[in-house]
Amino acid sequence: MAARIDLTLDAVHAPTLAVFWKTALGYVDEPAPAPFATRAEWHASFELGEDDSVDDGAWLCDPDGDGPRLAILKVPEGKTAKNRLHLDIRVSGDGTPAERWARIEAEATRLGAAGGSVLGVFDGHHVVMADPEGNEFCVAAGPAA
């Protein structure tokens, strides 16, 4: 059996990144783990210091259960270098190259309106973007159906 993975993003402000990545991926807030009714109740069970807040983290999941879970955790330092690992957001790959490129551009525009920024455009292939805290990701066509 293959291992399942979760992805974790460091953040200065986890709630801001959570809103962006829910918009980008179509993810939802992951429910609190059993037996806890809320994330706040779960967080309180760790008896952390008063400086720690449930808002220092966000936990997202694919509502269909297919994609990896995404944890977004507050860290004291800001981003200082290029990501060694990045996400690729794949839009539908069907259609002509021009149709696929139009969908890539439309998705990049949508994510720009949600707080992302374009870092580079590789015409006809992909767009390099950054989330609101500068984490790089690409928007590209997915495999044809």
Rank of each mutant, 00 (worst) to 15 (best):
H125N: 15
A144R: 06
F46M: 05
E41D: 12
L87C: 09
R103P: 02
R103D: 11
V118P: 00
D29E: 14
G116A: 07
L87V: 13
G124E: 12
T38I: 13
G57R: 09
P35A: 06
S117I: 01
A98Q: 04
R103W: 10
G112E: 10
L9V: 14
M1P: 08
A114M: 08
M129C: 08
F137P: 02
A18C: 11
A18H: 05
F46Q: 02
P15A: 11
G49W: 06
P132F: 00
K82G: 12
R110A: 15
P35Q: 10
D62G: 11
G120M: 08
A34D: 11
P63Q: 03
G120D: 13
T38P: 11
I89D: 13
V28K: 09
L60M: 08
P15K: 05
A140L: 14
A11Q: 00
A102V: 07
D131N: 07
R39P: 02
D64S: 09
E133V: 05
F137L: 11
G65V: 14
A81P: 00
A34R: 06
V19Y: 05
V139G: 07
K82P: 05
V28Q: 10
I5P: 10
V91S: 02
A32S: 12
R90D: 15
P63S: 11
L85A: 13
D56K: 01
A102W: 02
D123L: 01
P76Q: 03
R84K: 06
S53C: 03
D64L: 04
A71V: 01
V91E: 10
A24G: 12
P97F: 13
P31N: 03
A106C: 04
M1S: 12
L60I: 04
N83P: 00
A44C: 00
G124A: 15
G142C: 15
V127W: 11
A3P: 01
T109S: 15
G112K: 04
D123W: 03
P76V: 04
A114V: 07
H125F: 15
T8E: 11
E30C: 13
R100P: 08
L73C: 03
A113M: 14
T80W: 02
V12A: 00
A58W: 00
L17W: 01
E47L: 05
I5N: 10
R90K: 14
E47V: 01
L60E: 09
E136P: 07
D52Q: 04
L48F: 06
L17R: 02
A144I: 10
